[in-house]
Design a protein around this nucleic acid. Sequence first.
DNA 1: GGCTTTATCAACCTTTGGGTTGAATAAGCG
DNA 2: CGCTTATTCAACCCAAAGGTTGATAAAGCC
Lengths: 131, 131
Amino acid sequence: MLSTERLKTQVESMEDPRLSAVFAALADPTRRDIVTRLAAADATVGELAAPYDVSVQAISKHVKVLEDAGLVSRTRDAQRRPVHLEAEVLDLMTAWLERYRRRAEERHRRIDALLAELQHGTDDQTEGAAS
Amino acid sequence: MLSTERLKTQVESMEDPRLSAVFAALADPTRRDIVTRLAAADATVGELAAPYDVSVQAISKHVKVLEDAGLVSRTRDAQRRPVHLEAEVLDLMTAWLERYRRRAEERHRRIDALLAELQHGTDDQTEGAAS
DNA sequence: GGCTTTATCAACCTTTGGGTTGAATAAGCG
DNA sequence: CGCTTATTCAACCCAAAGGTTGATAAAGCC
């Protein structure tokens, strides 16, 4: 039953360390909304903050989180600092998701066969795999 | 400036509320690793916990987070509760990402074109001088 | 019926995250 | 030069996240 591979001591080191930051950054609805708006046009922190009823400092923090995750970049334009969406890291996520989405779908498709093979007599499921 | 103060609630409600949970669930490297392993085969909590040096309770919590996010499901098989990866929610994320990734790329392309235009200096003159 | 296995619940601890207010920096404007 | 605008820094608050240990529940084994 130990179908897993040899234990790797460092689970995290196998994948891109940026992934955690990017997923975490997009876990917040306000930040996702910011990304949405930046997909349409660059904007300053002040412009970004306008629609929300939180302080501009809070939005500044959000933008910093997005920046640290590599999702946005900033240039300097006088005292303004226009925020610009970077698409590359989204590619990183898409690649990760696509990989496991496809695998999960494959498994889903042939779940019956797998179940039949894995049943070596010790288990007796109540329902759900009867096909 | 936009003087819209109460767009905030509207903004957050425009998108799928599951997105926050899914992104947050995948922000943790241990949970991503669990998803990775579940893409290969279903597993029990005990099996999932084996490679890590944290308690089995901690992994149980992780699995619950994944379950609440709709990323995995569980059936009952005697006292075991095999965990199964669900691909649907990954589709949800992929759709979200793909949407903004594409927009950002378009913008990027346009900006490159604009930069090229600005850099034409004296050596090269294209027809579209007026923006 | 006991004992073991599998998994969750409960209480607790510590760190992180998102928010606040107030002060500081930096660049244009009159 | 002083004022205003744009943004960040700093200190603080509170809730949530991830971890622990100990106890509990449910099902199989002997």
